[in-house]
Design a binder for these strands. Structure first.
Lengths: 342, 342
DNA sequence: CTGAAAGCGCTTACAG
DNA sequence: CTGAAAGCGCTTACAG
């Protein structure tokens, strides 16, 4: 079953490829091709089940209608939901998306960008890992359309979209304070990326504003690729029996930390929120049916994904328009459940 | 910054494109091109940051090194983990993957297949929705490499890979029986696909083998796009105060059902497993930190994803080899936690 | 050992 | 209004 091409249709009707191409691209009227011929072309195309070869189109036009997506890990529901939204919004405009998981590894993301570049994608949506500044700068220099999501590099001027992490953490911490918690800990991850840094900054500022001294021993920074046992150790140090200055609340900067943390807290036989109150970033299903449903900082993932695609496509479609970089910072909302205390 | 092409390199060195192409494709030795020239070509390619245009290659060779993946929803962790594995295994062999979420909607999957076809993907990995038999048959007729995952159509002979759902449900039900449960319910979804059907069959067979009559009122088949309230109603009918013949255990055929179900059970003030024992298919994080950690039927997602890619690439690479359809049925394992009783 | 040439399937100035 | 022709960037018989 050989695929049918433009010239198959042209031969079939005894007309030129040019004409067929015009008609099939809806330019029949523009070139004043007779309705009758238009109809014939369309009919034959249908009859022969013509499927345009997008790759040939791409080679000719320089546009592939494909975008490259680089995130940390598609198996992580945070990125799964984001990815889904991006796929959907892209499809609305006829774009496909190639998914790449970088595992927060700059070497991987470098290879993935190169691969996507070779695939001639029209643009990129990237959640850049630590130490990938040079890669992003190279894209910017190359005048390639791209949008960063979830994090960005303050020193690189470009489109980016995310949430107000400082504000989110500030509010979450305040919420715990307002419930009488005084020894609030923060468990985070050493990503060295603005988003995580801002979370801890917001947490600290809330304490400062409440005249509570910051204790560095209450801030646990785990390696990115932390295991269960790393979290377990941090939990033990914060709320275990022999902990020196026990924490009475914990702000988890990611849901992976939170889920592991809750497991460890339960394993120690402690009650949430009685023994320790909890607030976590992100809102996985797990938190709804948890031992004690978890109060969370919920990010508008749908809006992030959708906006990212819109900004990207806008730049792709107007390559010569003067670029006005969009820096979108969305608000989060605090969903209050039982884990943070009554 | 114009991209550098083969002929740029050729001109730069005063040789032919042919030669450059040979060298860059590692065929230098095969064509006995002098080491010296090889080195020069490689150096210039590096210097000019040559990135082969895969799309041009694809047009010429008919191979794009791209595979199309159609699953129900990438935001669902089940498919997220599967997708991740597929992406990773494909990347190992130099293949990229275009992700498509069909939402179990055959109209969407039809469009997605057409889109992927136009993109000239080399093969497909598909988790086909109900009523998409004709689409799969068309692929088979077209002699296009593809592998089905998670479900398949018994009447269509093709590569497919999944788990032994009958066996899994049989064992899960037996496990509940062995813990003294007698009135075991099954909440499932009306997907009308072998995988779901086999689950309920396995459940029934376990009851039959234990000489327990099957009560249709204990089998709740919810619409695929069920809402929280649909699950809540089913739960109420099974274990609510005014339930006529209360169930003492529930087998959930999907984790989405299970998570919603547990929420509803808690809302009714019932205890798991005391009031009702639970086993669920699939193993999301949620089940680990649940009110009562959930006993689950765990599917070997990594192996499914990896094997699917291997079978697919094997067929892609040997298009003329006589196809011997592989029907891989993997075993699940039952991870026993508290929800199913002591 | 190396190069000139054809061609993959399109689009699009250009000419009439 | 319609067609012949060039060309996107590659690969690969073919010729020498």
């Amino acid at each position: 079953m050989k695929k049918t091409s433009l010239s198959d249709i042209a031969k079939h009707l005894g007309v030129s490829k040019t004409l067929v191409s015009f008609v099939l691209n809806g330019k029949g009227k523009e070139f004043r091709i007779s309705e009758e011929i238009c109809k014939k072309v369309l009919d034959v195309a249908k009859e022969l089940n013509y499927q345009p070869n997008r790759i040939a189109q791409g080679l000719r036009t320089g546009r592939t209608n494909t975008i490259g997506l680089i995130i940390a890990d598609i198996a992580n529901p945070f990125f799964g939901i984001l990815g889904r939204e991006i796929e959907q919004e892209a499809a609305r405009f006829g774009y496909r998306v190639i998914f790449c998981s970088s595992d927060e590894n700059p070497e991987k993301s470098r290879q993935q960008i190169a691969m996507l570049q070779q695939s001639q994608v029209d643009g990129y949506i990237i959640s850049p890992p630590k130490n990938s500044e040079d890669q992003i700068k190279a894209l910017a220099r190359g005048n390639v359309p791209f949008v960063l999501i979830d994090r960005y590099f303050p020193e690189i001027e470009c489109h980016h979209i995310g949430v107000d992490n400082f504000d989110a953490a500030y509010n979450a911490t305040n919420h715990l304070l307002s419930h009488g918690r005084k020894r609030i800990a923060n468990i985070t991850v050493n990503l060295d990326l603005v988003n995580m840094i801002q979370r801890t900054k917001g947490y600290k500022q809330a304490l400062i504003d409440a005249n509570i001294p910051i204790e560095e021993s209450l801030i646990k920074v785990l390696p990115f690729s932390h295991e269960n046992k790393d979290v377990a150790r941090a939990i033990k140090e914060l709320v275990g029996k022999s902990a020196q200055h026990k924490a009475d609340a914990i702000l988890f900067s990611t849901s992976k930390l939170g889920i592991n943390g809750i497991e460890s807290i339960s394993a120690l036989g402690l009650k949430i929120p009685d023994d320790v109150a909890i607030v976590s970033f992100d809102n996985p299903d797990a938190y709804k049916i948890c031992i004690s449903p978890v109060t969370v900082v919920n990010q508008p993932l749908k809006e992030i994904g959708k906006t990212a695609v819109q900004i990207l496509l806008n730049q792709i479609k107007h390559p010569d328009a003067p670029v006005k970089f969009q820096e979108v910072i969305l608000k989060t909302d605090l969903i209050i459940r039982k884990s943070s205390g009554a």
